[in-house]
Design a protein around this nucleic acid. Structure first.
Lengths: 358, 358
DNA sequence: CCTATTTTCGTGTGCGCACACGGTGAGTTT
DNA sequence: AAACTCACCGTGTGCGCACACGAAAATAGG
């Protein structure tokens, strides 16, 4: 049986200390107005007895409503960023009776200006706590610093920054996920095969998630002495110019006839899959990241073999929960929380998607 | 914003209906003593307004303690069945303030007699709800029927039975997990390869999890027309006679020189890995099930390539939570809940193990 | 020593709900 | 017409806690 199962109440502590419940309350909440002598006595009793407040009663009595704010990239239905939002909603419903409101703000993920603009709105809203997707690292760190100055706790999800002011982070270890992807990709690969590594053009100042994934990916081959066993072919793909992408890919396949596998580090490997389909190229094992609608479809029609996922919904959910645990329940929060690196195939993705993680 | 966010109280409903809060209370709890006329009026108001009781206040006011009981196989530290137990403990701590006690009972997973004996104890304890691992299917179904007769809800975890009396089930879709394993195993496999399928001796009456996995595994090859592309070699392995196992394996490898991969459907693939290590056989891709201590070690030293896992801790956690949601919060419970089919490799297992799923 | 101020502390109220208890009034019996 | 029954309904209390208010005690100032 887990031990913290005692049922001592504030009033019990008061009796033990020979004071009233109000005094104990003042000590618990550090509201002063208590003589040092009694204060210490009460504190030591609380310590010895492992007092745990009844959070049920506490939140019933506490009339304050906590105003949370989230700051995420805006996106269309079926796209990646809907997932964390779903988790946020789930957390809110679950915490409905604890008086928590969440104001959702959105920025354009391709435009740092918009992030800054919405940051201002967020500060104006005077929230009690915030959840941020720090796509623009510097700008996010600056925001977090301002929040910290106002004593407003904040969590990051998806990617991290290096500031020291955030309360907690929930996201994947990008480097390690690249490493894991490499293992999947290499599994069963014949020596001499060519590996197509599709890079994405980076927007200045954005998070370097995809780069870290690629680093981890290459590190696998280096660490296992495989750099000469295979040939790596790099290609840069643009986010919008699909026709241009296709031309580049066709060029590459003209030159290289031993491409057996390819990987792409952002959430749009389905675009590459589409190009290969048009070119009637099969038997190229594709690996990609995240469960965007296009990716899921590509996995199901077997044009993509593996997707690496990072439980984005959980990130949103746990981010909000961390804020609740911190503010409402006064619990200690683990600062860096790496999500599992989930490996998805056509055969297991349905169970992954349908799983509701209360 | 999720919609159910109104804050109507019982007293508000009472005002709207022109009655007192006591009457509304009687309607909500079906305690009778209310004229049909007012009853219907109140019910329609509750309906229209989407009344959601404040569970915080409810559980503060409700003095009843719920006594749960769990019935799991006994096992040593580091073995599989510790995981669901951990999840049960976590649920209990989380529900501490809702007055829930959990009595844990254990049976010997190799002895149906012991299951029956402990079942008796469980019934004598008169629990309010139970969580059962139905290793012995018939006996478990019989127990569930008796519980149902006493109006005691029960959930199954790990494996399911076909009775109609359980409230909910949390576990893996064994067949599909075998199917998914087949895909991993086949990935990169050369035509003509031999596949070693290690079966386990079945104890009469036990759950047929491993058999369903094997069915799913073979179904993959049939469905994709691969039965003639590879050769399948069966071997029966005993749970205790390791020396005998080794002799059998050695025999097989003398005859067959193209074994490139092997699979085992219970949680002891590490034993097979150990035998191959002794025989100095490398380059055989092994796939197994579940995170027993031996399996994790084998995965980390690369003698096993993949493990299929099923979130056993979550099963325990969610099982208890389902009982709470049903009894304490009067929520609807989904009856059959398949866990995700998790694919683990050396590269991602640490993040999986360390992940705490609040 | 008395008043004014400050520090310290106890009491009371209410959060929303469950539930026990007792009151009301129409119908029935003697 | 008094006594009684019984379905129906309102009121009151308490769950454990947060917080306001005001009383008591301690201290300061004259």
């Amino acid at each position: 049986m887990p031990e913290p199962f005692n049922k001592v109440r504030i009033i019990d502590i008061a009796h033990m200390a020979g004071v009233s419940s109000g005094t104990v309350d003042r000590v618990i909440h550090n509201r002063g107005q208590v003589s040092e002598e009694k204060r210490e006595k009460i504190l030591s009793i609380i310590e010895n007895i492992h007092y745990q407040p009844n959070i049920i009663a506490r939140s019933l009595a506490m009339k304050k409503t906590f105003h949370f704010a989230s700051l995420l990239p805006e996106c269309k239905a079926g796209e990646y960023w809907k997932a964390p939002e779903k988790g946020i909603d789930r957390a809110q419903v679950e915490m409905r009776n604890y008086n928590i409101s969440i104001e959702k703000l959105y920025f354009n993920q391709f435009n740092a200006q918009s992030f800054v603009a919405v940051s201002g709105k967020l500060l104006d809203a005077n929230p009690d706590a915030v959840l941020i997707a720090p796509t623009f690292r510097k700008e996010a760190a600056r925001l977090m610093e301002q929040l910290h100055a106002k004593n407003v706790p904040g969590v990051y999800i998806d990617s991290n920054t290096e500031d020291e002011f955030y309360l907690s982070y929930f996201g994947q270890h990008s480097y390690q996920s690249g490493y894991a992807a490499a293992r999947l990709l290499e599994n069963g690969l014949l020596p001499g095969s060519e590996i197509l590594v599709a890079r994405t053009l980076r927007i200045a100042g954005t998070s370097n998630q995809t780069e870290r994934r690629e680093e981890g990916f290459m590190a696998y081959f280096k660490a296992n002495g495989l750099m000469n066993k295979y040939h790596f072919i790099q290609v840069k793909m643009s986010a919008d110019d699909n026709a241009g992408n296709q031309r580049d890919i066709e060029q590459i396949f003209k030159k290289s006839s031993h491409i057996r596998t390819a990987i792409m580090f952002n959430s749009r490997v389905y675009q590459l899959a589409g190009i290969l389909k048009k070119m009637k190229i099969k038997d190229v094992k594709l690996i990609g990241y995240d469960l965007s609608g296009g990716n899921v479809a590509a996995l199901k029609d077997e044009s993509v073999s593996f997707l690496i996922a990072q439980r984005p919904e959980d990130q949103g959910y746990q981010g909000i929960m961390a804020l609740c645990n911190h503010l409402v329940f006064n619990k200690k929060i683990k600062r860096v929380n790496y999500m599992p690196i989930d490996i998805l195939t056509k055969e297991n993705i349905d169970y992954y998607i349908n799983y509701i993680n209360y």
